[in-house]
Design a protein around this nucleic acid. Structure first.
Length: 492
RNA sequence: CGGGGUGUAGCGUAGCCCGGUAUCGCGCCACAUUUGGGAUGUGGAGGUCGUCAGUUCGAAUCUGGCCACCCCGACCA
C-alpha cells in the first residue's frame, strides 16, 4: 500500500485529494480556492491541450486571445448570461494601492483610484467576444468566424476542490459566429463530437452525449449539449459542454450581417469549452489505491526504465544494453525515461512510478543481461512478465495500445454495470443511496418535478441522451405521461 | 454564505482542560553496509506552535479578530 493514500473504499473523496497531492499534480495555494498546478500535473494538461488544439484546428478553428477584464456595462448586456454568473464574479474596482499612512510598510487601496466603471474578471468570455465580433462582421462573406481561445477564467465558487472546482481554472472556449441557425447547430453538435472523441479515445473515458434540461442550461444559451461521464464512485461528472446560443448574443451586442438577399439579420452563435476539470475526470476514471493511472496517449512519460545494478560498471552495462531499445522506441514517438538516479533504490522507484501513473515500466538488471531479457510491468493491471529484449520494442508498442483500450473498456464496463433502469420513485431513492450511478427514468418534462427530485434526492437530470429511444411511460415522480427516459445521477 | 471540525519541523502527531519555550514516527543531511518491490545501522540538522492583537512576570496552552483547510448544506464547468 502506498504511503498516505486513503483507500478508495474507505473515503473516495479523501482518496481523490490524496492522489492529486501525492502524485504531485497540484496543491492548494495561498489564494482561497485557487490551486498551483505542479509540473507533473501541468505536463498532462499540456498533452490534453496539444491534442485538443490539433482537433480544433483540424475542424477549421483558429486561436485568438481576448482580455481578462470585461467592463460591467458589456457584461450585463446579455441579461440571462449576466444574471447566471453575477453571483460568482470577481470585480476590479480600483487600479492603485498606496502606503497606509496609519501603518507604514502596509498597503491600502487608494480611494482616489476608483475606476469610473468596474471591470468584471471574466467568468466566461461571450460578452467581450461578441462586443468585438460586432466590428468584424458586416456581411455573410465575413462568416463563419471559428475562433477558440485558451485562457483562465474566474468563478468565485463557495466550495472548491482541486481540479474539479477551483475559483480560477484553465480552459479553452470556442466562440463561433454563423449565418444560419442550421449551421450553428451543426457546429454545436460537431464540437460535442470532438469532445466525445477526445474523452473516449484519449482520456479512455466513455461519455454520454446529450442535451441539458432548461434548468441545467448555460445562462444565455438556447440549448446546451454536454458529455457526461461516470466516475468510479458512481457520481456523474459533466466533462464538457457545447452551447447553441441562438441569436441571443448577437441581439445583445447588435451584431448583424447582410445576407445574400441583402437583408440584415442577427448572427447565430455557439460556444463550447472544456477545462482543467478534465484532470479530475482522468483521475477518477482510472486511478487506484497505488496512485494515478494515466492512459498511454496522455502520459507525459509512457515507458520508464529502471536499472537494477550493484556498481557503476553494472549500470553502464545496462545502459548500453538498453540503449538500442530506447532509441527505437523514441523513433516511434514513444516517450521513454531512463531513470539512472543513484539516489533512490529500485523498489522506491517502482512505487514512485506507480504513484505517478507511468503506463509501462521496464526493470532490467544483471540477471537480465545474462539472459537477454527484461521485466515489463503494466500500470493498469499491475501485472509483470519477463520478455526477450529482442521482442521488447514490438511488445511495448502493442502493450501501450492494449493499456489504452483496456482502460476504456474497464471504464465502459463500469458505466454499464452502474446504469440502472427504474420506474418506481422509492426504488429510485434506494438505488441512489445503495448503488449510485446513472438511473434511466421517466420524467414529465417540467422544471418543477426536476427541482423536487433534486431537493429530495440530490440527484439531477444529467442529460437527455442524443438519439434517445422514445418509450412511453409515466414520470417517476408525478405519474404524468413521458415519452422517453432521461439520465438521473448525483453529480460532482 | 450557514452548521460542525482542524491548524504544532517537509508530512503525520503528543502536549492545551490544569500557563514556565515542545514529544514521537516518517522524511531530510553525513558515513558505512546495501540495491530484483518504498533498506539497515550510527551520528546530525531542522520549530518566531496558522496569523494578528489582548490578558499575564511568563502563552503552543487563556480571550478576541482574521486566514486557510476538511466534513455537511445552498451554488457551480
Amino acid at each position: 500500500m502506498s504511503k498516505g493514500i486513503t483507500s478508495q473504499t474507505d473515503d473516495y473523496s479523501k482518496w481523490y485529494n490524496d492522489i492529486v497531492v501525492q502524485a504531485d499534480l497540484a496543491d492548494h495555494s495561498a489564494v482561497r480556492g485557487c490551486m498551483v498546478i505542479k509540473p507533473s500535473g501541468y505536463a498532462i494538461w499540456e498533452k490534453m491541450q496539444q491534442t485538443l488544439d490539433k482537433m480544433f484546428k483540424d475542424t477549421g478553428h483558429v486561436n485568438a486571445y481576448f482580455p481578462l477584464f470585461i467592463p460591467k456595462s458589456l457584461f450585463e448586456a446579455e441579461e440571462k448570461n449576466a444574471e447566471g454568473f453575477a453571483k460568482e464574479c470577481a470585480v476590479v474596482t480600483h487600479y492603485r494601492l498606496k502606503t497606509d499612512p496609519q501603518n507604514k510598510g502596509k498597503l491600502i487601496v487608494d480611494p482616489e483610484a476608483k475606476l469610473e466603471e468596474e471591470l468584471v474578471v471574466r467568468p466566461t468570455s461571450e460578452a467581450i467576444i461578441w462586443n468585438t465580433y460586432r466590428g468584424w462582421i458586416q456581411s455573410y462573406r465575413d462568416l463563419p468566424i471559428l475562433v477558440n481561445q485558451w485562457a483562465n477564467v474566474v468563478r468565485w465558487e463557495m466550495r472548491t476542490r482541486l481540479f474539479l472546482r477551483t475559483a480560477e481554472f484553465l480552459w479553452q472556449e470556442g466562440h463561433t459566429a454563423h449565418a444560419s441557425k442550421e449551421e450553428a447547430i451543426l457546429e454545436t453538435e460537431k464540437m460535442l463530437g470532438v469532445y466525445a472523441d477526445f474523452a473516449e479515445n484519449w482520456l479512455a473515458m466513455p461519455v454520454i452525449k446529450g442535451i441539458k434540461t432548461a434548468n441545467e442550461r448555460f445562462a444565455g444559451a438556447d440549448e446546451t449539449y454536454c458529455i457526461e461521464a461516470m466516475m468510479q464512485d458512481g457520481k456523474a461528472l459533466q466533462a464538457g459542454t457545447s452551447h447553441f446560443l441562438g441569436q441571443n448574443f448577437a441581439k445583445a451586442f447588435d451584431v448583424k450581417f447582410a445576407n445574400k438577399e441583402g437583408k440584415l439579420d442577427y448572427v447565430w452563435a455557439t460556444s463550447w469549452g472544456v477545462s482543467t476539470r478534465l484532470m479530475g475526470a482522468l483521475i477518477m476514471s482510472h486511478s487506484d489505491d497505488k496512485g494515478l493511472v494515466v492512459p498511454p496517449k496522455l502520459a507525459p512519460t509512457q515507458v520508464v526504465i529502471v536499472p537494477i545494478y550493484k556498481s557503476e560498471e553494472g549500470l553502464e552495462k545496462i545502459r548500453q544494453a538498453i540503449q538500442p531499445l530506447q532509441k527505437a522506441l523514441q523513433a516511434k514517438n514513444i516517450s521513454v525515461k531512463f531513470d539512472d538516479r543513484d539516489t533512490q533504490r529500485p523498489g522506491w522507484k517502482f512505487a514512485e512510478y506507480e504513484l505517478k501513473g507511468v503506463p509501462l515500466r521496464i526493470g532490467i538488471g544483471e540477471r537480465d543481461l545474462e539472459n537477454g531479457t527484461l521485466e515489463l510491468a503494466r500500470r493498469d493491471t499491475l501485472s509483470k512478465e519477463t520478455v526477450n529484449l529482442n521482442d521488447a520494442e514490438h511488445l511495448i508498442e502493442k502493450l501501450l495500445a492494449e493499456i489504452q483500450s483496456n482502460l476504456f473498456q474497464r471504464a465502459q464496463q463500469r458505466m454499464k454495470n452502474m446504469t440502472h433502469t427504474c420506474d418506481n420513485y422509492e426504488e429510485f431513492k434506494r438505488l441512489l443511496d445503495d448503488k449510485g450511478g446513472f438511473i434511466l427514468a421517466h420524467w414529465d418534462g417540467t422544471s418543477e418535478t426536476e427541482e423536487k427530485i433534486k431537493e429530495e434526492t440530490k440527484a439531477t437530470i444529467r442529460c437527455i441522451p442524443l438519439n434517445n429511444p422514445s418509450e412511453n411511460g409515466k414520470c417517476i415522480y408525478s405519474g404524468q405521461p413521458s415519452a422517453q427516459r432521461v439520465i438521473f445521477a448525483r453529480a460532482y
